[in-house]
Write a protein that binds this DNA or RNA. Structure first.
Lengths: 219, 219, 219, 219
DNA sequence: TATGAATGAGCGTTCATTCAT
DNA sequence: CATGAATGAACGCTCATTCAT
C-alpha cells in the first residue's frame, strides 16, 4: 500500500495542457466544440453552432484553428497521448520489481489511475473513440501509441509475471487482451453505458481485478 | 457435444430479411449506403454519393426511403433486433437444463453462434455501434432489446449456474458484464481492431472461454 | 317581373361541361386539383399530392393532362368563358328593348344570374383570379373575353340607357367600371372576404343596385 | 381647400422604412425579389434566380433572411401596415370636424393620399394582394389592420356624416363597402388592369367621388 | 387505361471557409 | 485579435415528367 502511494507517481497524470496558453475565447470555443462533438458527432456539428454556443464570431474559430478538423485534432490528440502516458516510462522492469510484487498490484494501480484520468476527460475520450474510425491521422496516432507503446509495455509486464510463475503461459497478446477488455469493459459500463447506476466502485474494481487474476492464474 | 449440435437451433440465425422483398435498385442503394456509412460515418455520407455508387438517380433513394435517416434505420434495425434474437427464447430454463450442462457449453454455443452472425453482418454491426450514440431511436431500441431482453435472459443463465454451484456468487450484473466484455473484446480484436492478423479462432475462443470460466469459478 | 322570369334564359347558365365526358378518375383528379390550387396556389401544389388526394397514381394525371399547366387550364378556361357567357348574345338591342325597361332591371338580372354562377363555381373563380397574372394564356383569353366581349356588350347597354336619358353622360368605360366594381365588390365581400357573415342577400343587392343607380342617374 | 392642404399631414405617408438600415446587397436582394415575386408569384420564384438577379451569392440571401418566406414578409409587411396608416389617428372626430366639412372632402383626401402611396409601392402592393390568400401570417395581419383599424375608423367617418344628414341611413358596413370598392376599383383599373391607357386622373377621381356621393346621398 | 418506379434538374437551405474592416 | 458579411459548393429532398409493365 505504502509502496503504491509512494511510487506511483510515474503513473500520475501530468496535467493535459489544454488550458495553459489558451485565450479566454479559445477556451470557450473548445468547450463548445467538445459539447457538440459529443452530442452529434464531429461531422454533424457545424462551426456556426459551435461559434454561437461559444459566444464568438464564426471567423474567430478559424483564426485559432485553420479548419474544423484542426479543431477536432487540437482537442483530441493531447488526450490521446496522455491516455497511455503512464506506460511510457523508462526502466519499466525496475519499476515493476520495486513497486509491484504481484500482477494484482499492477492492475489495481492501473485501474485506479486511469479511472481518474477517464473521469476527468470523459467527453473527449468519447469523442476520440467515436472519431477514430473516420480520421486517418487519429488512427495512425492511435496505432502508434496504443499498439506500439501500450502493448509493448503491457506485454513486458505480462511476461514479467508469467516468468515469475504468477500468470498462465498463454500468448501475451491474449493475456493483454483479456486483461484490458475486462478493465475497459468496466469503464464502459461505469462511465458510458450505465453511468447513472449507483456504483460501488471499490467493489466492482475488486471484482474485476479478481476476475482477471483468477482467469489468468497459472494452473 | 452432440447436444450442442443437435439442439442449438434455437440459437441459430433466422435469416435477416434484408433482401427478400427489395427491388434490384433498392439492394444496390443499401449496399452503397452500408459501404459509405462504414467508411465515413452516417452524417459525413452524402445521398448524392450513395446514389452515384449505387448507380441510381438520387431521387430513387428517396422514393424508397423517405429520409436519409430512414435509410440508416432500415439498414440497422433488423440487424440490431437479430443481434440478440437467440436469447429471446421461451422456456429458457428447459433449454438450459436439456442442452447445457455447464456454463462452458452455454458460452461456447453463444460465442460460436454470434461469431457467424457478426462475421456475416460485420459492416452493419460497425455502423450500428458508431451511430447508436447519435440517434435517439437506435438508443431506445438498443436499450429495449439489450438491457431488457439480453440482460434478463443472460441473467437467468448466470443465476442458474450459480445455483448449480458452478459460478461464484457475485451480482449477476457483474458476472454478465465480465462474461460479455471478454467475448465482445475478442470480437472487437478479431474483427475490428486487428482483423488482418493470422487468427487461430478455435484457440482464441478456447482461451477466452477458459478465462471466463476460471475468472467466475466458484471458489 | 314576369318579363324577367320569362325571357332571362339568354342569361342562364348553360351547364359548364366539366363533367360530361370525364372518367371517374379524371373527376377525382380535377376535384383534388381544384382543392389544392385554391389552398396553396398553382405552383405550390405538387402533382404528387394531387394524385394522393385523388387516390390515383401520379402517372394517371399525366395520361389525361400532358402537363400540370394543362390541368390548370382544363379547369379554369371553361369557367372563364362561361363567366361572361350571358353577354354573348345576338340582337342585344332587341333583348334590351323587350326585356329591360330600366337599367335597374338589367343590373338586377345580371347580379342575380352571376351570383348563382359564382356561388356554384367559386373555387375555380378564385383560382382563376389568383393565376391570371402569371399565365400568359389565361391573360390573353381573359382580355379576349372580358375586354372585348363583356365591355363591348356592357358598353352598348350603358349607351342604350344613356340615350334613353336614364344615365348620366359620362364615358361609358367609366360607367361600366363604376357599375362593375360595385357589383364585384359585393361578390368579393359576400363570397371571399367575409363569407361567414350573416348576409341578407336581397337587401344587399337592393342596396348595391340602388347605389349604382343613384350614382349614375342622369342629373 | 386650404384646410385640406394645411391639415392633411395626418394622412401623409411617413416613409416606409425599407431602405434606411439595409446594406447595399440587401437592397439588391429585396429589389430582385420584388421583381420576381411580381412576375411569377412567390412560390414560382426561386432563391437561386433572385440571387442571380441581385448579383449576390445564394447564401447571402439566407444570411439576411432566414427563409425565403421571411424575405417575402420583410418586403410585404411594412407596406401592409402603412397601407392603412393614415387612418390610425387619434382624435379622428376632431380631425373630421376641423378638416372635412363634407364626406366629399374626406373621400378626395383619402383617394389622393392613397394614390401616391399605391403609385409608389405598387409592385409590393400587387405582391401583397397575390400572396395574402396563401400565407396565414399575412392574412392575420391583414385582418388585424384592415378589419379592425380601417373599418372601425372608416365606420366612424361614415356615421359622422350620416348623423350630419349628408349620407343615406344604410348600415355603415354597406356604405364602407360601396365607397371602398368604387375607390379600389379605380385603383385596380388605373394601376393594374389598364395602366397603359391615357388616364385623366383628375377627371376619373372626380367622377368616382361624385358617383359615391350621389350613390350614398341622403334621399 | 392505369400504374408507380425511375429520373435528373432544381429546390430552399446549410456548410466550412475567407477576408475586409 | 476579433468580427460577421460574403461566398459558392454541397447538402437532403421534391419536383414534374417519362415509360415499361
Amino acid at each position: 500500500m505504502k509502496k503504491e502511494e509512494n511510487n506511483m507517481e510515474w503513473l500520475f497524470d501530468e496535467e493535459v495542457s489544454d488550458s495553459g496558453d489558451l485565450t479566454e475565447k479559445q477556451k470557450r470555443i473548445v468547450k463548445a466544440a467538445v459539447e457538440m462533438f459529443q452530442e452529434k458527432g464531429f461531422s454533424a456539428s457545424s462551426t456556426s453552432e459551435i461559434a454561437r454556443r461559444a459566444g464568438v464570431a464564426e471567423g474567430t474559430i478559424f483564426r485559432h484553428y485553420r479548419t474544423k478538423k484542426d479543431l477536432l485534432l487540437a482537442i483530441v490528440t493531447p488526450v490521446m497521448s496522455h491516455l497511455v502516458a503512464p506506460f511510457i516510462v523508462k526502466d519499466l522492469d525496475k519499476v515493476l520489481k520495486q513497486d509491484y510484487e504481484h500482477y494484482e498490484d499492477f492492475l489495481k494501480a492501473v485501474v485506479r489511475n486511469r479511472q481518474t484520468f477517464i473521469r476527468k476527460h470523459l467527453p473527449i475520450v468519447k469523442i476520440l473513440i467515436q472519431e477514430i474510425p473516420f480520421h486517418e491521422e487519429l488512427r495512425t496516432q492511435f496505432i502508434e501509441h496504443i499498439a506500439k507503446d501500450l502493448f509493448d509495455r503491457f506485454g513486458k509486464v505480462v511476461v514479467h509475471f508469467q516468468e515469475k510463475g504468477e500468470l498462465i503461459e498463454i500468448p501475451s497478446s491474449s493475456a493483454i487482451r483479456l486483461s484490458l477488455t475486462a478493465i475497459l469493459g468496466f469503464f464502459l459500463a461505469r462511465y458510458i453505458m450505465v453511468p447513472d447506476r449507483d456504483w460501488d466502485d471499490e467493489k466492482e474494481i475488486e471484482l474485476t481485478v479478481q476476475f482477471i487474476l483468477h482467469g489468468l492464474k497459472a494452473r
